[in-house]
Amino acid sequence: MRILIAALGLVILAGCASMNERRAEGPARSFTSQRDVTTVAECVLFAWQNQSLAGVHYDVTIQPLPSGGKTVVSAGQIEFADFTKTDRGSSVDLYFQSGLMDWRKNRRIEAVKSCL
């Protein structure tokens, strides 16, 4: 029984890559907007905060992106979006934790698209 619990723990931890590791793997989706970084990032922040996923509202925060720009990140870094300035507005790179269900990804993507 202990071996089964230990194996399950390792499987769960395997899906928990750091934000920088996920960035190195590349975004799951990318978008562009003619709106500025702050406007788009704050829109996504409020949209994700207001979303109910399977009846639960998850904590979502906004933080500065080390290379400039902003990051909107959900509790536990399950998903996050990086917003960077471009010549024509901003770009959005969206990242998801591995093993995340498609319906949740689709809800987050819809929220991002509504803010572009």
Rank of each mutant, 00 (worst) to 15 (best):
V37C: 04
G26S: 09
G26F: 15
V40C: 03
L13V: 10
E21D: 11
K113T: 08
S67T: 15
H57D: 06
S98Y: 13
G68F: 08
D87M: 03
T71M: 15
Q34N: 14
R22H: 03
L4K: 14
Q77V: 08
A81G: 10
E21F: 10
W103E: 06
V56I: 13
N20Q: 14
S30K: 12
G76W: 04
A41P: 10
Q49C: 14
G55Q: 06
L8W: 07
N106I: 11
V112T: 01
L53G: 04
L65S: 06
Y95D: 00
L100T: 03
L116W: 02
D36C: 07
A75C: 12
A41K: 03
R29T: 10
S74V: 07
V72F: 02
G9R: 03
R108A: 12
V11K: 06
R29Y: 09
S30R: 12
T86G: 03
R88C: 07
S98I: 08
V37T: 10
I62W: 05
D59Y: 09
F96P: 03
F83V: 02
C43A: 07
C16N: 15
R108D: 11
K105G: 06
S33G: 04
A17T: 14
T38W: 10
F80R: 00
T84E: 03
D87Y: 02
I5G: 06
E79D: 14
A47M: 04
S18H: 02
A111C: 01
Q77R: 07
Y58E: 08
C43M: 06
T32W: 03
G55S: 06
C16H: 13
V73P: 02
K105E: 09
A14R: 02
G89H: 01
W48R: 03
R2G: 15
G69Y: 09
G26M: 12
M19V: 15
I5Y: 05
S52V: 11
V112D: 00
V11M: 12
I5L: 13
P64E: 05
L116Y: 02
A47L: 04
G55H: 05
A17I: 12
R88M: 07
Q51S: 09
F96V: 04
I5Q: 10
A81F: 01
V56N: 10
L94H: 00
I12L: 14
F96S: 00
S52G: 11
A54H: 13
S52Y: 14
R35Y: 11
C43G: 08
G76T: 04
S52D: 10
Q49N: 14
A41L: 10
V73C: 05
V44P: 03
I109Y: 00
A17V: 12
C115S: 01
V60T: 14
E110Q: 08
T84R: 02
V44K: 00
S114E: 00
S30Q: 15
Q49L: 13
A14S: 13
H57K: 11
K70Y: 09
N50T: 07
R88N: 11
D93E: 05
N20L: 14
I78L: 09
A75W: 12
C43F: 05
A54F: 15
M101Y: 09
C16G: 09
D93V: 06
L4T: 10
A14N: 06
W103Y: 09
E79K: 07
L65D: 15
P64H: 04
V73N: 03
R88Y: 06
F80H: 01
A7E: 06
S114W: 01
Q51L: 15
L53Y: 11
